[in-house]
């Protein structure tokens, strides 16, 4: 039994830390875990992804298309870009806040947020969990913990073998103490 999770977003959004928290939470439960990350040039505002695979019988750190149980998308267009990885009936947790690249303002392909969200709703159906990132940032007083807000929404879907308490322990173990309180609130935040 294994869980395959794709985290995706734009370089600088904190996908790597989120995948590390998932892995730490899995490890503390004694589960085997493998992950793969985008590191390098794409971290400068490019599309980035992490693959996290938890459980037994996993050979490759990379997930095949159509095999992910869960996609945690930090950005709507990136959710669509990674959607081919989702298995049939899989769950998508997506932040509503778009990051509009410079290219979309200076003549490149435009960013049609409404079309992107409509496509996600149509393809994922009731397994789509939409997280209002702006509301979260306002309530928490910081936009910097979107990654933990999304992890909270992800564990509440009960798709994974991990609970909010597992993530909480990982935060306590992996982050400096001065960030604990904010991230604990972020983990439990929901609309």
């Amino acid at each position: 039994m294994s869980d395959s999770i794709v985290l995706c977003g734009v370089g600088g959004q904190g996908t790597i830390l989120a995948s590390k928290l998932l892995a730490a939470a899995a490890m503390s439960k004694g589960l085997p875990v493998k992950t793969a990350e985008t590191i390098g040039m794409a971290q400068r505002g490019g599309s980035v992804f992490s693959h996290v695979r938890i459980g037994d019988g996993v050979a490759s750190p990379l997930i095949g298309r159509g095999r992910a149980d869960l996609i945690i998308a930090f950005e709507p267009a990136e959710a669509v870009r990674q959607l081919p990885y989702l298995r049939e009936g899989g769950t998508v947790v997506v932040s509503t806040r778009p990051i509009i690249p410079v290219s979309a303002t200076i003549g490149g392909p435009v960013y049609d947020l409404a079309a992107v969200m409509a496509y996600l709703r149509e393809q994922v159906g009731e397994k789509l969990v939409v997280v209002d990132a702006d509301a979260a940032a306002e309530a928490l007083g910081s936009a910097k913990c979107l990654n933990v807000v999304l992890l909270g929404a992800a564990v509440r879907t009960r798709v994974l073998a991990l609970t909010a308490d597992d993530i909480r322990s990982a935060i306590a173990a992996r982050l400096p103490e001065r960030f604990h309180e904010l991230n604990f609130r972020a983990l439990d935040w929901s609309e």
Partner: peptide, 21 residues
């Protein structure tokens, strides 16, 4: 061969080449 996915075509997406910070 793995079964081909029959998903509807995705909307046009913005491109994200890496950029200077």
């Amino acid at each position: 061969a793995p079964a081909a996915s029959a998903a509807a075509p995705a909307p046009q997406l913005p491109v994200r080449p890496p950029v200077l910070c």
